Each structure stands twice: as C-alpha cells, then as structure tokens.
Amino acid sequence: MANQKVLDEVVTKVNELLAQSPVKDVEKNLRVMLGGLFTRLDLVTREEFEVQQEVLQRTREKLTALETRVAALEAAAKADLSNTLDVPPETLDDLSETE
C-alpha cells in the first residue's frame, strides 16, 4: 500500500537522523502518529484512482453513445408519426413543446 511505503520512507529517514540519539521511542511514536494521520486523511492509492478514472471515462463514453442513440430513436419515431398522421414534423415539434 502506498501509505505504508511513505510511512516507511519517513521512518527510515528519521532513523538515519536519530541513529546516534538515545531516544529509540521516537520511531515508534512517529510511526503511530503518522499512521493515524494517514488513516484520517482517507487517502486512496494511485492505482485505485486510475482504475476509477478509467471507469468514469468508460461511463462517459457509454452515456454519450446512449444520448446519441436516444436522439436518433426520437427523430425516427417523430418521422414515423409524421408519416402516419401526414403532418409536417414542425407541427409535432410544436405539440411536444406544449407538454
């Protein structure tokens, strides 16, 4: 997990700085503190973000395709109704606007 990697890197750097220090509890306390901070931030990994981004892109593409299809079906239905009633399509547009 990315959070664990970042936490480990920070702890490693702090360990390097405090290698000569008699304070060994600093690592433990820092790990607990940073772990709590990352948990509260409710972060997602880059991988999870990219997966959701791809899902959103596919959803947008499907929505666009469906909107195009619905528009074509509405136009075809309007043309069929116009031919059946022998009414100009503009008249049907006027009727749909009053609804």
Rank of each mutant, 00 (worst) to 15 (best):
N3D: 14
N3P: 05
Q4Y: 08
Q4E: 15
K5L: 11
L7N: 01
L7M: 09
D8T: 05
E9H: 10
E9G: 05
V10A: 12
V10M: 11
V11T: 10
V11C: 05
T12N: 12
T12I: 04
K13T: 09
K13H: 11
K13D: 10
V14S: 05
V14G: 03
E16I: 00
L18T: 15
L18S: 09
A19K: 14
K24G: 10
D25H: 07
V26C: 10
K28D: 08
K28Q: 09
N29K: 14
N29F: 03
L30V: 15
R31C: 06
V32Q: 10
V32I: 15
V32F: 10
L34D: 02
G35T: 09
G36H: 07
G36P: 00
T39N: 08
T39D: 13
R40M: 09
L41K: 09
L41S: 08
D42Y: 02
D42H: 12
D42K: 15
L43Y: 04
L43Q: 05
V44W: 04
V44E: 14
T45R: 00
R46C: 02
R46T: 13
E47A: 09
E47D: 11
F49V: 08
E50M: 14
Q52S: 11
Q52R: 15
Q53N: 11
E54Q: 15
E54K: 14
V55E: 03
Q57K: 15
Q57H: 13
Q57F: 05
Q57W: 07
Q57D: 12
T59K: 14
R60G: 08
K62F: 05
L63K: 07
L63S: 06
T64L: 12
T64H: 08
T64P: 00
A65H: 01
A65L: 07
A65I: 01
E67M: 08
E67K: 14
E67S: 12
T68N: 15
T68F: 04
R69H: 11
V70P: 02
V70G: 01
A71R: 13
A71M: 10
A72E: 15
L73T: 06
L73F: 05
L73G: 00
E74R: 13
E74I: 05
A75R: 14
A76W: 04
A77C: 06
K78A: 07
A79P: 01
L81Y: 09
S82C: 09
S82P: 06
S82D: 04
S82I: 09
N83D: 14
T84I: 11
T84E: 13
D86K: 13
V87A: 08
V87N: 00
V87D: 03
P88C: 00
P89K: 00
P89I: 04
E90L: 12
L92I: 15
D93Y: 11
L95D: 01
S96N: 03
E97W: 01
E97A: 14
T98I: 15
T98C: 03
